[in-house]
Amino acid sequence: MQPHLDHFRALLAERDRFCILSHIRPDGDAYGSALGLALSLKAFGKEVSVYNEDGLLWNYHFLPGKECIEKTPAAAPGPDVAIIAVDTSTQERLGETFVGWNRQPDVNIDHHQSNPGFGRINLIDAESPACAQILYDLIEAAGLPCPPEAATNLYVGLMTDTGSFQYRHTTAHTFEVAAGLVSRGADPTAIAQRFYQSTSVESFNLKREVLGVTKFTHGNRVAHYRLTREMYAKSGARTDEVENFLEQLQVVGSVEVAFMLEEMEGGKTRVSLRSRGTVDVNAIAGGLGGGGHRLAAGIRSSLPPDELEALLLRQIGEALAAHGG
Protein backbone atom coordinates (compact mmCIF):
# COMPACT_ATOMS: atom_id res chain seq x y z
CA MET A 1 0.00 0.00 0.00
CA GLN A 2 3.03 2.29 0.46
CA PRO A 3 3.27 3.61 -3.15
CA HIS A 4 -0.43 4.49 -3.06
CA LEU A 5 0.04 6.18 0.32
CA ASP A 6 2.78 8.34 -1.19
CA HIS A 7 0.45 9.26 -4.06
CA PHE A 8 -2.27 10.16 -1.54
CA ARG A 9 0.12 12.45 0.32
CA ALA A 10 1.02 14.10 -2.99
CA LEU A 11 -2.67 14.61 -3.79
CA LEU A 12 -3.17 16.32 -0.42
CA ALA A 13 -0.35 18.70 -1.27
CA GLU A 14 -1.67 19.41 -4.77
CA ARG A 15 -5.41 19.91 -4.12
CA ASP A 16 -7.40 22.20 -1.85
CA ARG A 17 -10.89 20.94 -2.68
CA PHE A 18 -12.24 17.42 -2.12
CA CYS A 19 -15.53 15.56 -2.27
CA ILE A 20 -16.07 12.29 -0.45
CA LEU A 21 -18.67 9.70 -1.41
CA SER A 22 -19.80 6.39 0.10
CA HIS A 23 -22.04 3.55 -1.02
CA ILE A 24 -25.79 3.48 -1.51
CA ARG A 25 -27.86 2.16 1.40
CA PRO A 26 -25.13 3.53 3.71
CA ASP A 27 -24.24 1.96 7.05
CA GLY A 28 -22.20 3.10 10.02
CA ASP A 29 -18.86 2.50 8.33
CA ALA A 30 -19.94 4.36 5.18
CA TYR A 31 -21.06 7.45 7.09
CA GLY A 32 -18.39 7.23 9.77
CA SER A 33 -15.58 6.88 7.25
CA ALA A 34 -16.85 9.68 5.01
CA LEU A 35 -17.44 12.14 7.84
CA GLY A 36 -14.33 11.11 9.75
CA LEU A 37 -12.10 11.81 6.76
CA ALA A 38 -14.02 14.97 5.84
CA LEU A 39 -13.67 16.48 9.31
CA SER A 40 -9.98 15.58 9.38
CA LEU A 41 -9.40 17.27 6.01
CA LYS A 42 -11.42 20.31 7.09
CA ALA A 43 -9.25 20.63 10.21
CA PHE A 44 -6.26 20.47 7.84
CA GLY A 45 -7.59 23.51 5.99
CA LYS A 46 -9.17 21.80 3.01
CA GLU A 47 -12.59 22.50 1.47
CA VAL A 48 -14.64 19.28 1.61
CA SER A 49 -18.09 18.16 0.44
CA VAL A 50 -19.68 14.87 1.51
CA TYR A 51 -22.17 13.20 -0.82
CA ASN A 52 -24.33 10.11 -0.67
CA GLU A 53 -27.03 8.99 -3.09
CA ASP A 54 -29.41 8.41 -0.16
CA GLY A 55 -28.49 11.49 1.85
CA LEU A 56 -28.55 11.13 5.64
CA LEU A 57 -30.61 8.29 7.13
CA TRP A 58 -32.55 9.07 10.32
CA ASN A 59 -30.66 6.72 12.64
CA TYR A 60 -27.37 8.53 11.99
CA HIS A 61 -28.55 12.01 12.94
CA PHE A 62 -26.39 11.84 16.08
CA LEU A 63 -23.15 11.92 14.06
CA PRO A 64 -21.04 15.06 14.48
CA GLY A 65 -20.84 16.92 11.19
CA LYS A 66 -24.02 15.31 9.85
CA GLU A 67 -24.97 18.66 8.29
CA CYS A 68 -22.11 18.14 5.82
CA ILE A 69 -23.90 15.21 4.16
CA GLU A 70 -25.81 16.09 1.00
CA LYS A 71 -27.52 14.01 -1.63
CA THR A 72 -25.23 13.50 -4.60
CA PRO A 73 -25.85 16.41 -7.00
CA ALA A 74 -26.58 15.81 -10.66
CA ALA A 75 -23.71 18.04 -11.76
CA ALA A 76 -20.19 16.72 -11.28
CA PRO A 77 -17.72 18.90 -9.36
CA GLY A 78 -15.08 20.79 -11.29
CA PRO A 79 -11.83 19.16 -12.37
CA ASP A 80 -9.99 20.86 -9.50
CA VAL A 81 -12.01 18.84 -6.96
CA ALA A 82 -10.45 15.52 -5.97
CA ILE A 83 -13.00 12.71 -5.62
CA ILE A 84 -12.55 10.17 -2.81
CA ALA A 85 -14.67 7.01 -2.51
CA VAL A 86 -14.77 5.29 0.88
CA ASP A 87 -16.12 1.90 1.99
CA THR A 88 -17.50 1.12 -1.48
CA SER A 89 -16.84 -2.20 -3.22
CA THR A 90 -17.57 -1.09 -6.81
CA GLN A 91 -17.88 2.26 -8.54
CA GLU A 92 -21.53 1.49 -9.39
CA ARG A 93 -22.39 1.31 -5.68
CA LEU A 94 -21.62 5.00 -5.38
CA GLY A 95 -25.02 5.44 -7.01
CA GLU A 96 -26.59 6.20 -10.37
CA THR A 97 -26.09 9.93 -9.95
CA PHE A 98 -22.35 9.50 -9.46
CA VAL A 99 -22.13 7.13 -12.42
CA GLY A 100 -23.71 9.93 -14.47
CA TRP A 101 -20.76 12.16 -13.62
CA ASN A 102 -18.57 9.94 -15.81
CA ARG A 103 -15.62 10.55 -13.48
CA GLN A 104 -13.13 8.08 -12.08
CA PRO A 105 -12.54 8.58 -8.35
CA ASP A 106 -9.10 9.96 -7.64
CA VAL A 107 -8.86 7.85 -4.47
CA ASN A 108 -10.57 4.56 -3.58
CA ILE A 109 -10.26 3.65 0.12
CA ASP A 110 -11.90 0.36 1.03
CA HIS A 111 -11.75 -2.99 2.82
CA HIS A 112 -14.04 -5.12 0.63
CA GLN A 113 -12.51 -8.31 -0.72
CA SER A 114 -14.37 -7.86 -4.02
CA ASN A 115 -13.10 -4.30 -4.71
CA PRO A 116 -11.46 -4.28 -8.19
CA GLY A 117 -9.43 -1.11 -7.56
CA PHE A 118 -11.51 1.43 -9.49
CA GLY A 119 -9.67 4.59 -8.37
CA ARG A 120 -6.55 6.25 -9.70
CA ILE A 121 -5.12 5.72 -6.22
CA ASN A 122 -6.30 2.57 -4.43
CA LEU A 123 -5.87 2.10 -0.70
CA ILE A 124 -7.50 -1.30 -0.16
CA ASP A 125 -6.93 -3.66 2.74
CA ALA A 126 -9.27 -6.66 2.62
CA GLU A 127 -7.94 -7.86 5.97
CA SER A 128 -9.16 -4.74 7.75
CA PRO A 129 -12.49 -5.20 9.58
CA ALA A 130 -13.66 -1.68 8.69
CA CYS A 131 -12.82 1.14 6.32
CA ALA A 132 -12.69 3.37 9.40
CA GLN A 133 -9.63 1.43 10.61
CA ILE A 134 -7.85 2.03 7.31
CA LEU A 135 -8.69 5.73 7.55
CA TYR A 136 -7.39 6.03 11.10
CA ASP A 137 -4.07 4.54 9.99
CA LEU A 138 -4.07 6.75 6.89
CA ILE A 139 -4.75 9.91 8.92
CA GLU A 140 -1.93 8.98 11.28
CA ALA A 141 0.50 8.15 8.47
CA ALA A 142 -0.31 11.34 6.53
CA GLY A 143 0.05 13.53 9.60
CA LEU A 144 -3.54 14.78 9.39
CA PRO A 145 -5.40 16.10 12.43
CA CYS A 146 -8.05 13.92 14.09
CA PRO A 147 -10.33 16.20 16.14
CA PRO A 148 -12.91 14.67 18.52
CA GLU A 149 -15.68 14.94 15.91
CA ALA A 150 -13.62 12.96 13.40
CA ALA A 151 -12.65 10.41 16.06
CA THR A 152 -16.33 9.91 16.98
CA ASN A 153 -17.30 9.19 13.37
CA LEU A 154 -14.43 6.79 12.83
CA TYR A 155 -15.32 4.99 16.07
CA VAL A 156 -18.90 4.57 14.80
CA GLY A 157 -17.54 3.00 11.61
CA LEU A 158 -15.22 0.70 13.54
CA MET A 159 -17.84 -0.31 16.12
CA THR A 160 -20.59 -1.09 13.62
CA ASP A 161 -18.52 -2.96 11.03
CA THR A 162 -16.88 -5.15 13.65
CA GLY A 163 -20.22 -5.99 15.27
CA SER A 164 -19.07 -4.24 18.45
CA PHE A 165 -15.64 -5.88 18.10
CA GLN A 166 -17.00 -9.43 17.73
CA TYR A 167 -16.32 -10.30 14.09
CA ARG A 168 -13.44 -12.48 12.97
CA HIS A 169 -11.27 -9.80 11.36
CA THR A 170 -11.12 -7.90 14.66
CA THR A 171 -7.47 -7.93 15.74
CA ALA A 172 -5.25 -6.49 18.44
CA HIS A 173 -4.62 -3.56 16.10
CA THR A 174 -8.38 -2.93 15.90
CA PHE A 175 -8.43 -2.41 19.66
CA GLU A 176 -5.37 -0.16 19.37
CA VAL A 177 -7.25 1.94 16.83
CA ALA A 178 -10.32 2.05 19.09
CA ALA A 179 -8.12 3.18 21.99
CA GLY A 180 -6.56 5.85 19.79
CA LEU A 181 -9.99 7.16 18.83
CA VAL A 182 -11.16 7.21 22.45
CA SER A 183 -8.01 9.12 23.43
CA ARG A 184 -8.92 11.66 20.73
CA GLY A 185 -12.41 12.24 22.09
CA ALA A 186 -14.72 9.40 21.01
CA ASP A 187 -17.11 8.37 23.82
CA PRO A 188 -17.84 4.61 23.52
CA THR A 189 -20.76 4.62 25.98
CA ALA A 190 -22.57 7.56 24.40
CA ILE A 191 -22.02 6.20 20.87
CA ALA A 192 -23.28 2.71 21.75
CA GLN A 193 -26.37 4.11 23.45
CA ARG A 194 -27.23 6.37 20.51
CA PHE A 195 -26.75 3.61 17.95
CA TYR A 196 -27.98 0.45 19.68
CA GLN A 197 -30.49 1.78 22.21
CA SER A 198 -32.40 4.45 20.30
CA THR A 199 -34.68 2.38 18.08
CA SER A 200 -38.21 3.49 17.28
CA VAL A 201 -41.40 1.64 18.22
CA GLU A 202 -42.03 1.22 14.49
CA SER A 203 -38.66 -0.47 14.02
CA PHE A 204 -39.39 -2.73 17.00
CA ASN A 205 -42.71 -3.72 15.43
CA LEU A 206 -41.02 -4.44 12.11
CA LYS A 207 -38.47 -6.65 13.86
CA ARG A 208 -41.36 -8.56 15.44
CA GLU A 209 -42.84 -9.08 11.95
CA VAL A 210 -39.48 -10.29 10.65
CA LEU A 211 -38.96 -12.79 13.45
CA GLY A 212 -42.46 -14.12 12.85
CA VAL A 213 -41.69 -15.07 9.23
CA THR A 214 -38.12 -16.30 9.73
CA LYS A 215 -37.50 -19.80 8.37
CA PHE A 216 -34.88 -22.31 9.50
CA THR A 217 -33.60 -24.89 7.01
CA HIS A 218 -30.69 -27.31 6.49
CA GLY A 219 -30.94 -28.73 9.97
CA ASN A 220 -31.33 -25.23 11.47
CA ARG A 221 -27.96 -24.20 10.06
CA VAL A 222 -29.55 -21.61 7.73
CA ALA A 223 -32.02 -18.90 8.73
CA HIS A 224 -33.65 -16.42 6.38
CA TYR A 225 -36.61 -14.13 5.94
CA ARG A 226 -38.31 -11.95 3.35
CA LEU A 227 -39.00 -8.30 3.98
CA THR A 228 -42.06 -7.06 2.08
CA ARG A 229 -43.68 -3.69 1.50
CA GLU A 230 -46.71 -4.94 3.42
CA MET A 231 -44.52 -5.49 6.49
CA TYR A 232 -43.26 -1.91 6.27
CA ALA A 233 -46.83 -0.63 5.91
CA LYS A 234 -48.11 -2.67 8.86
CA SER A 235 -45.31 -1.64 11.20
CA GLY A 236 -45.00 1.96 10.05
CA ALA A 237 -41.21 1.56 9.88
CA ARG A 238 -38.97 3.16 7.28
CA THR A 239 -36.77 1.21 4.89
CA ASP A 240 -33.67 2.51 6.65
CA GLU A 241 -34.68 0.93 9.99
CA VAL A 242 -33.64 -2.66 9.23
CA GLU A 243 -29.92 -2.44 9.91
CA ASN A 244 -28.69 -5.18 12.27
CA PHE A 245 -31.85 -7.30 11.89
CA LEU A 246 -29.81 -10.19 10.47
CA GLU A 247 -27.72 -10.29 13.62
CA GLN A 248 -30.87 -11.34 15.48
CA LEU A 249 -30.87 -14.58 13.50
CA GLN A 250 -27.25 -15.27 14.32
CA VAL A 251 -27.91 -15.43 18.05
CA VAL A 252 -29.22 -18.96 17.38
CA GLY A 253 -26.24 -21.19 18.03
CA SER A 254 -26.88 -23.62 15.17
CA VAL A 255 -27.12 -20.94 12.46
CA GLU A 256 -24.12 -20.89 10.13
CA VAL A 257 -25.62 -18.61 7.47
CA ALA A 258 -28.35 -15.98 7.71
CA PHE A 259 -29.79 -14.00 4.84
CA MET A 260 -32.68 -11.71 3.99
CA LEU A 261 -34.47 -10.74 0.80
CA GLU A 262 -36.11 -7.34 0.52
CA GLU A 263 -38.52 -6.28 -2.19
CA MET A 264 -37.46 -3.03 -3.84
CA GLU A 265 -38.99 -0.66 -6.35
CA GLY A 266 -38.48 -1.49 -10.00
CA GLY A 267 -38.84 -5.22 -9.53
CA LYS A 268 -35.43 -5.73 -7.92
CA THR A 269 -34.62 -7.68 -4.79
CA ARG A 270 -31.94 -6.74 -2.28
CA VAL A 271 -30.14 -9.55 -0.49
CA SER A 272 -27.92 -9.38 2.58
CA LEU A 273 -25.96 -12.45 3.71
CA ARG A 274 -24.02 -13.20 6.90
CA SER A 275 -21.83 -16.18 7.73
CA ARG A 276 -20.03 -17.45 10.81
CA GLY A 277 -17.14 -18.51 8.55
CA THR A 278 -17.88 -21.99 7.23
CA VAL A 279 -19.53 -20.59 4.10
CA ASP A 280 -17.92 -17.86 1.99
CA VAL A 281 -20.94 -15.65 1.28
CA ASN A 282 -18.81 -13.32 -0.85
CA ALA A 283 -18.32 -16.17 -3.32
CA ILE A 284 -22.07 -16.81 -3.44
CA ALA A 285 -22.85 -13.11 -3.86
CA GLY A 286 -20.17 -12.70 -6.51
CA GLY A 287 -21.77 -15.40 -8.64
CA LEU A 288 -25.01 -13.39 -8.60
CA GLY A 289 -23.55 -9.98 -9.39
CA GLY A 290 -22.93 -8.89 -5.79
CA GLY A 291 -19.96 -8.89 -3.47
CA GLY A 292 -18.53 -7.97 -0.10
CA HIS A 293 -16.59 -10.11 2.36
CA ARG A 294 -16.35 -13.78 3.28
CA LEU A 295 -18.56 -13.16 6.33
CA ALA A 296 -20.88 -10.45 4.98
CA ALA A 297 -22.02 -9.76 1.44
CA GLY A 298 -24.87 -8.31 -0.56
CA ILE A 299 -26.68 -8.64 -3.89
CA ARG A 300 -29.16 -6.61 -5.93
CA SER A 301 -30.93 -8.88 -8.38
CA SER A 302 -33.64 -8.76 -11.02
CA LEU A 303 -34.46 -12.44 -10.52
CA PRO A 304 -37.97 -13.17 -9.22
CA PRO A 305 -37.83 -13.42 -5.40
CA ASP A 306 -39.01 -17.06 -5.32
CA GLU A 307 -36.33 -18.09 -7.82
CA LEU A 308 -33.64 -16.09 -6.03
CA GLU A 309 -34.57 -17.53 -2.64
CA ALA A 310 -34.46 -21.10 -3.97
CA LEU A 311 -31.13 -20.45 -5.69
CA LEU A 312 -29.56 -19.05 -2.52
CA LEU A 313 -30.80 -21.94 -0.41
CA ARG A 314 -29.40 -24.44 -2.91
CA GLN A 315 -25.98 -22.76 -3.15
CA ILE A 316 -25.69 -22.31 0.61
CA GLY A 317 -26.68 -25.96 1.08
CA GLU A 318 -24.00 -27.06 -1.40
CA ALA A 319 -21.40 -24.94 0.39
CA LEU A 320 -22.35 -26.46 3.75
CA ALA A 321 -22.22 -29.97 2.27
CA ALA A 322 -18.74 -29.27 0.87
CA HIS A 323 -17.63 -28.58 4.45
CA GLY A 324 -19.22 -31.70 5.83
CA GLY A 325 -22.58 -30.13 6.71
Rank of each mutant, 00 (worst) to 15 (best):
Q315H: 13
T171M: 15
P304N: 05
G36I: 02
V182Q: 13
V99Y: 12
P77A: 11
P64E: 12
G157R: 01
R274W: 04
E243S: 15
R314I: 12
P77D: 07
L308E: 14
Y167A: 05
K46Q: 05
A179R: 15
N52S: 10
A237N: 12
G212D: 07
P26Q: 08
D29P: 01
I299E: 04
R103F: 08
D110F: 07
H4L: 00
G277M: 01
N108Q: 10
V251N: 11
L5G: 01
L320T: 04
V257Y: 05
A43S: 06
N52K: 06
T72I: 11
E202M: 04
N102K: 01
L181F: 11
L181Y: 11
L11H: 03
E96S: 05
S272M: 00
A172Y: 13
K268V: 08
T174F: 12
K71C: 15
Y136S: 15
E230G: 09
N115V: 00
E265H: 05
P129F: 13
E243V: 10
V81T: 08
Q2F: 03
L206N: 06
M264Q: 10
D29Y: 05
I316V: 14
V107L: 11
P129C: 15
P77K: 03
A296Y: 01
S114N: 07
T88N: 07
R274E: 03
G236F: 09
R168Q: 09
G143M: 14
V201R: 03
I24A: 05
K234Q: 06
S89F: 00
E53Q: 15
I20R: 02
S275V: 02
D6H: 10
Q91P: 00
N153H: 07
G298M: 01
